[in-house]
Design a protein around this nucleic acid. Structure first.
Lengths: 212, 212
DNA sequence: ACCCAGTCTGAAACTTGTTCTAGATTAGCG
DNA sequence: CGCTAATCTAGAACAAGTTTCAGACTGGGT
C-alpha cells in the first residue's frame, strides 16, 4: 500500500527522487507547488482550491490529482518543501547558545517567526498535517523525520542520540505542532507559544545531565 | 461574534445552559449527539455525514445545522460530552500514586485506554478538534479547559497552580493531543504514546521541587 | 517515419458539507 | 380559544473535493 509502482497501468507520479520524472514533469510538479504556496499564502487552507491550483499551475485537474492524490497530500508536500528550505537556512547560521535546550528553543522560535511572516500558508500546511489520515502517513512521516532532524541538529553535534533524547525530541515535536495550532486558531498568543516551547525544551536538560 | 443571541429573528440554539431550551429541544440535542457518537464509533470522521446524523436523530438537516453550525462544531460538542463523562468517572476513582507526575500520567493513560476502546470515535473527535478554525474557538476552548481541569485534578489537591505549573500543563495537553493524532494515523504505537506521556509528565517534577 | 504505452487535457459527473426556501408545527400569550 | 413569532420539515440548490472518460499528445523503441 505504501510502495507499489508495479501496477502495469501506472497509477501515480510519486514525489521521491526514486522515480525518473522527465524534465517537463519536474517542472509541472514545481509549478503546482508554487501555485499552492501562492494560494495558501493568500487565504490559508480554504483558499487552496484544487481547481484554482490546477489553473494557476497551467495543468488539468486530473493531472493535479495524478501528482498529488488529495488536497491533503498536496499541502503536506508543500510543507515538506518549505521545511527543506528552512533546514537549509538553519544549517547556514546555527544558534550559538551554549545550552542545547536553548539552542533548540531558539531554532524553533526562528521557525515560528518564519510562520508568522506567512500565517495563512502556515495555517494551510499545519491544518493539513494534523488532519491527514492513514492514507498520507508516509508523507507525514517524511515531514516528521525532517522536523526531528532539525531539532537534533540544533541539539548539537553529539553522536547518536539516546532513546531518552529521542523521546524528548518527540515530545518537543508534539508541543511544537500543537502550540502552532492553538496559535493559528487564535487561542494562544505568540508569547504563549514561546513559553510553551521554552517549557518543553527543559526536557532536554533532563536528558543531558553530563554538562552541568 | 461569540455571543449575540440578540438578533430579532433568532439565529441559533447554542449549547450553553444559558439558553432556556424546551424539553423537546433538549431531547433533540441529545438525540443528535447520540447519533453522532454512534456513527463516529462505526466509521470515524468520514462516517459522520450530516444527512445521516440528521436522519438517525429524526431531525431535518436544517435543524441539525441550527443546533450545530458545522460538522466540526458537532464533533467538538461530542468530544465535550465525552470528556465530561470521563471527568466524572475519574473523579470517582482518582489515581493513588504518591507522585503527582505519576498520577497525571496514569490519568492520561486511562483516558487513552478509553479511546482505544472506540478508536473510530476518538478519530472523529480528535480530528475535528485539531482541524477546527477560529469559528469554533469558543467551543474548542471549552474542551481545552475541561482537559486542563482533568490534569489539574490529577496533579493533586494543591491550591492555585503556579504559572510554571500551568505552562507544564499546557505542554502536557499539547503532547496529549499530538500523540493521540500520531497514534490514530498509525504513525505511533500504543507503547510509544505511553512513553511520550510519561516523558512529558516529568515536567511536573521540575515545577514541584518541594516534595523531594 | 511509425507505433505503442503512458500522459495530459477538458469536461462532465458524483459526493458530501452547507445554504436557502416555502410551508407545516409548536410555544407562549392575551 | 385564537394569534404571532419562532421553530421545524422536506427538499432543492450550491460549493468544493474527487472520480471518470474520451480524445489529443509525447517519448522512446523499431
Amino acid at each position: 500500500m505504501t510502495t507499489e509502482p508495479k501496477s502495469p497501468t501506472a497509477r501515480a507520479v510519486p514525489a521521491g527522487p526514486s522515480l525518473p520524472l522527465t524534465e517537463r514533469q519536474a517542472a509541472r510538479r514545481r509549478r503546482i507547488l508554487r501555485a499552492t504556496e501562492e494560494l495558501a499564502s493568500r487565504g490559508g487552507f480554504d483558499a487552496v482550491q484544487m481547481r484554482e491550483v490546477a489553473e494557476a499551475a497551467g495543468v488539468a485537474l486530473g493531472t493535479l490529482y495524478r501528482y498529488f492524490p488529495s488536497k491533503i497530500h498536496l499541502l503536506v508536500a508543500t510543507m515538506q518543501d518549505q521545511l527543506e528550505r528552512l533546514h537549509g537556512t538553519l544549517r547556514k547560521r546555527p544558534p550559538t547558545d551554549t545550552d542545547p535546550a536553548a539552542r533548540v528553543a531558539r531554532t524553533l522560535m526562528r521557525a515560528f517567526r518564519a510562520m508568522q511572516r506567512e500565517p495563512h500558508l502556515a495555517d494551510a500546511m499545519v491544518r493539513a498535517l494534523t488532519f491527514a489520515d492513514r492514507s498520507v502517513s508516509a508523507e507525514v512521516d517524511t515531514v516528521s523525520r525532517l522536523t526531528t532532524a532539525i531539532i537534533l541538529d540544533a541539539m548539537g553535534p553529539a553522536g547518536p542520540p539516546t532513546p531518552e533524547q529521542l523521546s524528548a525530541v518527540r515530545v518537543i515535536e508534539h508541543t511544537w505542532h500543537s502550540a502552532l495550532i492553538t496559535w493559528l486558531s487564535g487561542r494562544a498568543s505568540i508569547a504563549q507559544v514561546r513559553i510553551d516551547i521554552e517549557t518543553v525544551c527543559r526536557l532536554i536538560r533532563l536528558t543531558t545531565p553530563q554538562q552541568a
